[in-house]
Design a protein around this nucleic acid. Structure first.
Lengths: 345, 345
DNA sequence: TTGTATGCGTTATCAG
DNA sequence: CTGATAACGCATACAA
């Protein structure tokens, strides 16, 4: 294994100083005569020179890298966010390091540390932990942070979030507008702020019409895994059906859970939407692949990624924009899992 | 913005040399008296010292990082592979850089370059490009490479792949064993080796019973996107139905496409599996969330990730194992989308 | 336009 | 056990 080529090797071959080589190869605008410039470039190519970013970054103290911490890429919602981030980042010459916290607060902390050690100056995080002490410390050292999806309260953190409350409200209102009055809500544990917000929206819409909320909340904590979520949906749907006054429509806190609800219903001989309407939340692509296509509340995930990345890069460019929160609006995706039951016979 | 703390700062505070600080803080087993060791650790903690990995890596020329290049994390198959890789990597103290080539050969090359520049010494790649020249160059400089899923022919590259041919064979045989004789195959363009292999398995199984293959291949090139895939499944299913001798069973080259097939069938008033059997390929989780639950050929994606990472780490540890290929075996996941049609009335 | 010299933060060598 | 010092590969201030 031969030692990798450095600018010094090239300098020797080209009979110039390494400074000149650096100036040419780093794309600096420092004046270098066309002749030597060409010579250096030729030799670099011929010798398969690969610049060592570690050296460069150590010197310049800028890694052109942003970190992203999300629960898991196996969640299509987050993988979409990441694709959005990457698109913008690549366009600006930045690289992205993705870390899956897997709903493990300790792991999240660990990744936070790793990112700091790698001298990453910008971070986009959908935090699942509650301990923002470490995050604050990093920000004190100059790291720029954008929180997405999950609210992080800390000074100087720009947030970009969805209007979850409104999404919950919209979903419920849509069901009501279709004539439903007994509307059940199935949700995983209401421990994360986002989930509570959706619930609030649901509750608010119900209260407006003096309707009683009917909620089935999972008791289990979060082993994030879509199959789990699916099964949870099944279980909770079962619970709702066994209530004294079963609902005519079910609102699930995410699409995969809605898949579970639909599955459980069909197992019990109930047809969607004829016998029961179902509405989901998130707007993942698979929603339109099932039968019936799932009516749902779409969160602009991809756009969120793009916006988060743009904001972060602005911050890194030293544009001293004020810290601000962006609230992205949900959108009703009307497909075929909700029936209109208000037509009087 | 204050200058970050370095080992020199700590050295001053602890009244020792930076060499000693390094020995303590880097977890070296070099002997240091318990007293100074403790003092250094205390001061490091108090001053919120964050080691600069760039410096360390530049010096040691080892980044404890492996690169992964895959088509897209939005494909649940690959996100599963990555989770497998990460699990092993983390366990051994390695970090993972994920790059989505998005089915763009140029982008793949770009990421390859980036990874090399970042001094990453190990790479796991599911290559979509055909130009393995760059890859070979990198291997010449000492990079260890493991190719997964997609075969890359090059010297010294360990491969870990699925037995796609056998998977295709198994799927077809399963349909045959359930009495089907007219079996259609829908596939995206047969341009990648993996896809051709599946097709070969299908064809082989058909020939064994002297049956005529009936294939619908997409003409469009690959804009990888599940929705696209889904729609392709719909379109190709339509084609098959309009054949002079329509099949009684359809085999799709991946699960999402199978979703499209099922969707199209139900739109045309055909029930699965009563009127038409469908079998998929991949075994993504969503397969069991649709109706009817999709019978499919499962590829052990997560395990592939784990195995690839283990092999790579062994290679990086200098264990001079011979270059070898691992072939992972597919598994039939019998669910409910295939009907037994052989019972004679 | 080019070269020299220095330092980024760390580890490693070698001498004490 | 500890310290001084030289790298690692690169960019840049300063000198020529």
């Amino acid at each position: 294994m031969k030692r990798p080529i450095t600018i010094h090797d090239i300098a020797k071959l080209a009979e110039v100083s390494s400074a000149t080589v650096s100036r040419v190869l780093s794309g600096s605008d420092y004046p270098v005569s066309a002749a030597t410039r060409e010579k250096i470039q030729r030799i670099a190519k011929e010798s398969n020179y690969i610049p060592n970013m570690l050296g460069k970054q150590l010197k310049t103290n800028s890694s052109m890298t942003i970190g992203v911490i999300i629960p898991s890429i196996s969640n299509p919602f987050y993988s979409s966010v990441i694709l959005g981030i990457e698109g913008i980042a690549r366009q600006k010459g930045f690289h992205v390091i993705v870390c899956n916290s897997l709903h493990d607060a300790a792991l999240e902390q660990e990744y936070l540390k790793t990112i700091a050690e790698k001298q990453v100056k910008g971070l986009i995080i959908s935090s699942i932990g509650s301990d923002q002490a470490m995050l604050q410390k990093l920000m004190d050292t100059g790291m720029k942070v954008i929180a997405i999806d999950q609210k992080v309260d800390g000074e100087g953190i720009s947030q970009i979030e969805f209007d979850y409350r409104k999404g919950g409200y919209m979903a419920t209102k849509h069901l009501q507008s279709m004539g439903h009055r007994k509307i059940g809500y199935v949700t995983s544990q209401l421990d994360r702020p986002s989930r509570r917000s959706i619930y609030q929206g649901y509750e608010e819409a119900m209260r407006e019409l003096d309707l009683e909320p009917l909620t089935a909340e999972s008791a289990e904590d979060d082993v994030y895994n879509s199959l789990n979520e699916f099964n949870m949906g099944k279980k909770l749907a079962g619970k709702l059906l066994e209530a004294v006054h079963p609902p005519t429509a079910i609102f699930a806190c995410n699409d995969v859970m809605a898949f579970g609800v639909i599955n459980e219903l069909s197992l019990r001989g109930l047809q969607v939407p004829r016998d029961m309407s179902v509405i989901g939340f998130d707007g993942i692509e698979y929603g339109q692949m099932i039968h019936p296509p799932l009516t749902t509340i779409k969160q602009p995930d991809y756009e969120m990624g793009r916006m988060a990345c743009s904001m972060l890069l602005d911050l890194l460019n030293g544009e001293t924009k004020p810290v601000y929160d962006v609230v992205l609006q949900p959108q009703l995706l009307e497909r075929s899992s909700v029936a209109d039951v208000q037509s009087k016979p």
